[in-house]
Design a protein around this nucleic acid. Structure first.
Lengths: 233, 233, 233, 233
DNA sequence: GATGAATGAGACTTCATTCAT
DNA sequence: GATGAATGAAGTCTCATTCAT
């Protein structure tokens, strides 16, 4: 019965262009209210709890098996202090998950600024999977929480949607320009290809299937490119 | 700390052809030992427990929140009888999960017998996603268990591997015959495309994203076909 | 937040005469349902818990300060067994309180069968206060619970009402017969005099004010008799 | 384990006459020491805490469920400041209870100055019950505290004793003058009749039994008068 | 083999009290 | 003297597992 007690405001102010302020959507999910009216000391303790929690979750490798006692031990604060800042493990984790996925979102957004769509995809995938690798421990936990609780499932969908929207916009632009297979539905293709990359990351870094780095990345780029019938020119 | 107490023998005796006896791989995972020496009455109770568990899991919609008490209530057997047949919730669920994934494996295996690879893929995807839809409730639970426990993660990987192996074999054959893009690594492509279809099913039927049936299916087929550069001839 | 989880059926089948089956009203409050479908073993454990609780409450002398751990220790059962039979401390205590007040009700009902109203009152008061003295420890706890929680307040009122109703009926009969001061309102007088006797018992046996037995009893009888202007003939 | 940390001196300096300085007894219970050496600012904070506590107790309607956090919130002072002025919730409440009962004591003392004992009783009862009605919320809490803790039980007895003593003195005077039934023990009668009035107030204003104002009051006066065999002349 | 009561470890949460600023 | 964050002891309740019948 997870009840993240802190409310979140749904962010929707994103422009759909190819170069959005990357964090826009996600940052809207971070709860500024929770931090308002907190003394410097309070803020420090709160931060220690978040950091301690992250470390505790990663050590245990399991959302359900990480106890609040593990978190406070790792944070070096008293048991009671946990409840000064968070109503429950879920509430804290929600914030942590938003933070991590926010980082991945930002890091997984291509910094490529050229006109070659294949290079853009290649850059994005590399960044995204590199980020996945670095956040593998937390992603394991996030997948757990998402599998377990509707609230986290919703969060995950909302964050995924941010990615997908940008990609759809891109596909539509390419389609209109005749630079990709116009018979392909941009929305479904975007969802499917995000599924592919996302789940490949899960397979690779969470389930532990081993791949040759370079081969895996270049193959993914090929698959994206081919599947869309991309034309550089 | 889940400890499936029944041992499993790793199944790998599969022939790599395109038309294996579908259940072969999976059936090797089913613990025949557990059933040996069971009276007819005992077997019946055991079966009732498995069926009751399935129904209990689906009702609760959550692996962790389904209690053993829910399972025995749903099964109509005594609390204590549970431990006569299963060492723990994990042990029972393991068996159930194998059973369900086995069904999906069988159902997701193309019955197409022609020579057109695109039609083969189309048929497989349709069958797989149709099966996913029907098993959505259990798949939700299986994803939970997989997210939570290494044992189930391993199971999931092993089952997935069965799919992938067949697909790799197929890709290699097509590649040798020059009927697909030879520059694509068959193993990675197989993994990636299975990730795509699998995760798309999760998105669609577990996360609840809505798609137009026909459009989704045909787009997936297109993406597979394009990405591999399939040539019908 | 007391939530007696066992439901009680309100008893109302009492005939208002002067010689009712004394326990009728109260016994209707005892929850027969809770005992239905209990094995002999279960019933024994349940009884041990009730007895252990009674003893624990009396030892601690305080409702709030008696912990569930005290109760199970005193009962000689495991902690978890408490929750097999009672949803909370409140639920158990509710039953216990009904039981005790039932005993007091039965014991406080005059067995006097003559026609002299003063002797009847005298007999009732003696029995009631004697019963109060013997149940002083539990009455202390019951007063606590009544002071603390609306549920117990309601219970106390309902039980008190049983007394009052019988007395009112008696007063009305005496009034019609011209054997008491007809200018006195029977209902208010009954309430007031029950208040007097009840609270005198509290003062005497709970607060610990000391009185000479015989003098106290005879004075109370005098006060009742005088106040109502009773005439023996 | 309530431990009112402030010491109290037992007040008993009352003269036994019929017109004592009403507050004398009670005022002796107020801890003057606690106020000594308090700055004007400190005194103000202390007062705010007492007022806030009163309001918090009345809002919650329960002694145990009113937290110190509720009190300081209601008072508008900092959490820590509570302990600058009071050693515990019990200590503060003790003072508050003394104050309230003092008010009721003063208000419940007849201002009647004539010679008619029935009119005197009538006036007293009216004033007392009127006062009870107005203080019902706090009386609920005081009864709770009294039921729970020996310290408050003792306080309650001491305050009650003040009433009773005056009434006993009065009864003795009337008895000597042959204006009431001389066979009645004045002390026990005083206790019993105070019990009646006190508990009737509890029944009426705390338990919520409803009575017609005028009928209730006049009946009580009748019961007092009759029971004592009062003669106006 | 079936039954369901008994067990108790362990998780969560509250809140009076302390203490550094 | 005021502030409010920090503390941790103590209590409640759950539920997987055991065991006597």
């Amino acid at each position: 019965m997870p009840k993240p007690t802190r409310t979140q405001t749904t962010g929707s102010g994103h422009d759909g262009t190819l170069t959005p302020e990357a964090g826009e959507l996600v940052s809207a999910l971070v709860n500024a209210d929770a931090l308002a009216g907190l003394s410097a000391k309070g803020l420090r303790t709160r931060t220690r709890l978040l950091e301690g929690a992250r470390s505790a979750f990663e050590k245990k490798g399991s959302y359900v098996e990480t106890r609040i006692s593990d978190i406070v031990k790792e944070s070096g604060v008293a048991y009671g202090s946990f409840y000064t800042y968070f109503g429950s493990k879920e509430a804290l984790f929600y914030e942590l998950a938003v933070e991590v996925v926010h980082e991945m979102y930002v890091e997984g957004t291509s910094r490529y600024r050229g006109d070659n769509p294949i290079e853009r995809i290649d850059a994005s995938n590399r960044q995204f999977l590199d980020s996945y690798r670095r956040h593998a421990a937390m992603m394991t936990i996030i997948e757990q929480a998402a599998a377990l609780y509707p609230e986290f499932r919703a969060l995950r969908r909302r964050l995924r949607q941010g990615f997908v929207d940008r990609i759809v916009a891109n596909f539509e632009r390419l389609s209109k320009a005749g630079r990709m297979d116009t018979s392909i539905d941009p929305a479904i293709a975007a969802h499917a290809l995000v599924s592919m990359t996302d789940n490949f990351g899960y397979l690779w870094f969470v389930l532990g299937e081993s791949f040759d780095d370079e081969l895996a990345l270049s193959t993914l780029t090929q698959l994206w490119g081919n599947s869309l019938g991309l034309r550089s020119t």
